[in-house]
Write a protein that binds this DNA or RNA. Structure first.
Length: 365
DNA sequence: AAAACGTGGCT
DNA sequence: TAGCCAAGTTT
């Protein structure tokens, strides 16, 4: 393969086809960092809105370093992989204290930040600082699995090393950041799962295209099995307010809020599950009085069916004791928008807001 | 080193 | 519909 030609063709294509993303207009290090963390395992189109809200709220390192986790999580709500947001808060503290609020250009210093791995360090170094550091993400692996017609598992350490070295050898000294983004842009827009080889600027140098093995590249790992879960949750209403609790650290969705509930056990009805979970989690006797809805959602390898019920106190009233939460309490339903919820619970709230049966609960008075 | 960690859109 | 999978990192 002709490296000079490959790089030139790719950059020319990028100049003509790059998407207009907000952090590309003025790639300063803080903005590049924010965009790269948000982009991890997330499609660019979804990142844009979150990025703009984030930059508005936390415009620089110092603003972020001063932020509360509660506010950071609320801004991140719906993006998933919330440890990214918590790690950014930790990293902002490191940057403010150890680097005086100035984003470091040293690749090793970048790599040492919480939440910054091999890929992200290379991306920031090249895009924000113009350094010739490779950034090998799934796009880049896919592109070179085809260009080089690699028959090894694409996620193996060996493949990653080969691809990183290839990227290094192709990297132009004057446009490192554009080259990094061009490779990923090509993977996202052209050399995708279902590739559009007719539109590819480097199809003339693609070994897989010549060998007619494009559809077999990259060689992916066998996916893990998904698990189905049935859950039940209850919205306890008392004197016009609803009970929510904040999830524990070292669990799924740490620090996010939720309505109490849990898995439906063998022989239980969803209503019985809600009553049992309320007793276990918050030591309250409740009775489900109305079926709100049943919704499904997915997280990591789980597919969840969640049965949702409106609940009342079984014996008039009571004080919650939070056995399986950091804290919690009764809040006015109008205030729920101020808390970060996992998507399933967020959708439950939206459902109730849109359902006339619960109009009085969400009315402003 | 395998598994956990979210979510929504597309096929 | 049931996967597939997206600018990965951490443990």
């Amino acid at each position: 393969m002709d490296g000079i030609l490959f790089t030139q063709q790719l950059l020319d294509w990028y100049d003509a086809n790059r998407r207009d993303l907000p952090w590309r207009r003025a790639p300063e290090p803080y903005a590049v960092w924010v965009s790269e963390i948000m982009a991890q395992q997330t499609q660019m189109d979804r990142v844009v809105g979150y990025f703009e809200r984030w930059m508005e709220r936390f415009p620089d390192i110092h603003a972020l370093a001063r932020a509360h986790e509660e506010d950071v999580l609320k801004l991140w709500e719906g993006l998933g992989y919330y440890s990214r947001a918590r790690n950014m808060l930790k990293a902002a503290s490191v940057l403010a204290v150890d680097h005086d609020g100035v984003f470091p250009s040293d690749p090793a210093a970048i790599r040492s930040l919480p939440g910054v791995g091999e890929y992200t360090a290379g991306a920031i170094a090249s895009i924000a600082f113009g350094l010739p550091e490779p950034a090998v993400d799934a796009n880049v692996l896919r592109v070179f699995a085809r260009v080089l017609d690699l028959d090894q598992p694409v996620r193996s350490g060996e493949t990653r090393a080969v691809v990183a070295e290839t990227v290094r050898s192709l990297m132009p000294d004057d446009r490192a950041g554009d080259f990094t983004q061009a490779l990923m842009e090509l993977g996202a827009l052209v050399c995708s799962k279902n590739p559009r080889c007719g539109d590819c600027p480097v199809s003339g140098q693609c070994a897989a295209l010549s060998a007619d093995t494009v559809s077999r590249r990259p060689v992916l790992p066998v996916p893990g099995k998904t698990t189905r879960i049935n859950m039940a949750t209850g919205v306890l209403v008392h004197e016009g307010r609803v009970l929510i609790q904040k999830r524990l650290p070292d669990d799924v969705w740490p620090g996010l809020w939720e309505f109490p509930g849990g898995g439906i056990e063998q022989g239980e009805t969803p209503e019985q599950t809600v009553a049992r979970e309320y007793m276990e989690e918050v030591e309250l006797a409740v009775e489900p009085v109305e079926d709100i809805t049943t919704l499904t959602y997915a997280y990591t390898r789980y597919r969840v069916t969640m049965h949702c019920f409106l609940c009342r106190f079984a014996d008039g009233s009571g004080e919650p004791v939070f056995n399986e939460a950091v804290t919690g309490g009764f809040v006015p339903p109008q205030d729920l928008s101020g808390y970060a919820f996992p998507s399933g619970h967020r959708r439950l709230i939206q459902f109730m807001k849109a359902d006339s049966r619960f109009a009085d609960l969400f009315s402003d008075s």
